[in-house]
Design a protein around this nucleic acid. Structure first.
Length: 570
RNA sequence: UGCCUGAUGGUGUAAUUGGCAACACGUCUGAUUUUGGUUCAGAAGAGUCCAGGUUCGAGCCCUGGUCGGGCAACCA
């Protein structure tokens, strides 16, 4: 397993990192000697969908805390609803957490591991008169529960005898009743201002096959009943979750109170979930985008899923830096996507090899260069990394440059190629545009240049300065490639923020995917493998897509380079 | 009309828990540069939701408002 999350803190910037409110709570607990000074966190996904960057934040937070406080971190699947959960999701989640570098060591658990214990405890709670079997339908129970402003009323079955409850519960387990016929409810308080305390359901009957326990059970525990107890069984000290569970905390504590023995007690702490501009994060909406074909799948590089980001070219390290910059707090937030992009650029800038790739090729002929001469020119792999070495790039009379790097009638400060103007070809020569040729549509077809042989990079006369430097690729050596350019999936900053009755999908960006077919890349890219990361010089960071083969290279644009030129020209 | 919870530059997050608001992203200058990238130097931008109060002193404490988010699944 990689260990990108291991390093306590990267001290780039040397700033003293301030501590977030959760760490402050943990410090306080430690000071008070709680739980024998143990710190133990967990990440508890439900295997009913793919993980997204919000989960990544949570994983990084929980794992990071376990590292920081010398504690432990568990991965636990909250698999209490067999009607929604599948092995496919378990597998993808395992992959994603592993890829992020969060190490659960030998502590991979499932809430379903605890079904027997939960069942026993339920008998105990029933025996103590604190839970009962209710025969009513979901609709009736819901009605009786009242509303936030109106107290609920008691079920006619609320005061059954312990014996009857026990008997019914055992028969529920034995499969004597159909789905929905009965539930077990905690006996708490129908008048509580907190809806979750109005005799919440602990068990429902579900004759369904579970991905791990098969047909062993036909009753399944509800989240509230299973979660705190699972934490308790695993010795979790700080059970970190998102804000919507804040109202569940009294119930979490109530359930723990029913079974607690001794000093140890898990504690639930809530933080605000991550939101990112121009993105949707809800599982339901992400599923819809996949199911209805708005994207190619869960790992579509435009998706905010972990597998999508991975395919897009994001690194675990970049997501960790992102999570650190975002911070942890309780107020609602919308993080600027620019911060995400900044994070991946920062990582890739120091690690990605610089290569030559031309997205929209324009033929250049060096008229004073020998017809059959071929040179090998020395090229640095990464100026930010002295250890990255060099490689040789073939150069010849005919080249491709980027279409947008030539203009017949350029504006002031266009430091690129134009009639009479000089530019440097990166790692090669300074050339001057002498003329150009149009095709039948009036488009520039070929640009004719002369080169100054004295100016070859690294040579005697290479010191001469020109205003612009272009990337290029030798026409006869170039390799064809398909390049996929991604833009934000939504055009609205808060896509879900739509008027009544309007679907958020109206905010989908129709131009979020652009596929370029006849791109020309340097020959060294021929042997690239999916996941390899590069900087296409002057353009952006790219990675080899999983669709790529030796005969059909496919690259994804992870993120463009910052570009102050097109910006000033808008 | 109930309960829980939050409010600090455009966006996030800080502020030794009472001592005249910091860092990052973004924005804008300028320098360097064989990537209009990187790097470097600098600038603008909040007086901390509002109104009272306590105090020599309040973003931090108190009172009352305002606004935002969450809560009524046999989902998690």
């Amino acid at each position: 397993m990689n260990n990108t999350l291991e390093n306590e803190s990267d001290n780039r910037g040397e700033g003293k990192s301030s501590i977030n409110f959760i760490e402050a709570i943990i410090n306080e607990d430690l000071k008070n000697g709680k739980n024998d000074g143990r710190v133990h966190t967990r990440f508890p996904p439900e295997p009913n969908g793919y993980l997204h960057i919000g989960h990544a934040k949570s994983i990084i937070l929980n794992y990071g805390i376990s590292r920081k406080f010398n504690g432990k971190f568990n991965l636990r699947f909250d698999d209490t609803n067999p009607t929604k959960e599948e092995q496919e999701y378990v597998d993808s989640i395992l992959d994603d957490v592993k890829w992020l570098g969060a190490d659960w060591e030998d502590r991979l658990f499932f809430a379903s591991d605890y079904f027997d214990q939960l069942y026993e405890w339920t008998e105990k709670i029933i025996s103590e008169g604190n839970a009962y079997v209710d025969d009513q339908s979901a609709e009736i129970i819901s009605e009786q529960r009242g509303t936030p402003t109106k107290p609920g009323i008691e079920s006619p079955f609320r005061n059954r005898s312990v014996e009857e409850n026990l008997d019914l519960f055992r028969r529920m387990k034995a499969g004597e009743f159909p789905n929905g016929a009965k539930v077990v409810r905690a006996k708490i308080d129908l008048a509580s201002p907190n809806m979750h305390m109005r005799d919440p359901v602990m068990y429902r009957i579900l004759h369904a096959n579970h991905h791990r326990t098969g047909d062993k059970w036909c009753i399944y525990p509800m989240y509230d009943w299973a979660h705190g107890e699972s934490d308790y069984l695993e010795g979790i000290t700080h059970s970190i979750c998102t804000l919507e569970f804040e109202v569940h905390r009294p119930l979490y504590n109530w359930f723990v109170d029913q079974i607690i023995e001794g000093e140890y007690r898990p504690r639930q702490i809530e933080f605000a979930r991550l939101n990112i501009s121009y993105t949707v994060m809800s599982k339901r909406k992400l599923l819809e985008l996949v199911k209805d074909g708005y994207v190619s799948g869960w790992d579509d590089p435009r998706m905010p899923t972990i597998c999508g980001l991975r395919r897009r070219g994001y690194t675990p390290e970049s997501l960790k830096m992102f999570a650190e910059k975002v911070g942890v707090a309780k107020r609602d937030n919308i993080i600027d996507v620019a911060l995400l992009e900044y994070s991946i650029r920062e990582d890739l800038n120091r690690t990605a090899s610089r290569v030559m790739a031309v997205l929209n090729p324009l033929k250049v002929v060096i008229t004073n260069y020998p017809d059959d001469l071929e040179e090998e020119l020395l090229s640095e792999n990464n100026p930010e990394d002295p250890d990255s070495g060099h490689r040789m790039l073939p150069f010849s009379k005919e080249l491709f440059i980027e279409k947008e790097d030539f203009m017949i009638d350029p504006p002031k400060k266009f430091f690129r190629l134009a009639p009479g103007q000089e530019v440097r070809l990166k790692n090669a020569y300074i050339i001057r545009c002498e003329s150009y040729e149009l095709d039948e549509n009036g488009e520039v077809k070929t640009v004719f240049c002369t080169h100054d042989h004295e100016t070859r990079s690294g040579g005697e006369g290479s010191g001469r300065k020109v205003k612009g430097t272009l990337h290029w690729v030798s026409a006869k050596h170039a390799v064809d490639a398909e390049i996929r350019l991604f833009d934000r999936l939504f055009i609205a900053e808060s896509p879900e923020d739509v008027p009544e009755g309007v679907d958020y999908k109206v905010n989908l960006n129709p131009e979020s995917l652009q596929i370029l077919k006849n791109c020309k890349v340097e020959p060294g890219l021929k042997g690239t493998k999916p996941g390899d990361k590069f900087q296409f010089q002057r353009i952006g960071y790219f990675c080899t897509d999983t669709d790529s083969t030796a005969d059909n290279l496919v690259f994804n644009r992870t993120v463009p380079l910052r570009d102050s030129w097109t910006k000033t020209n808008k």
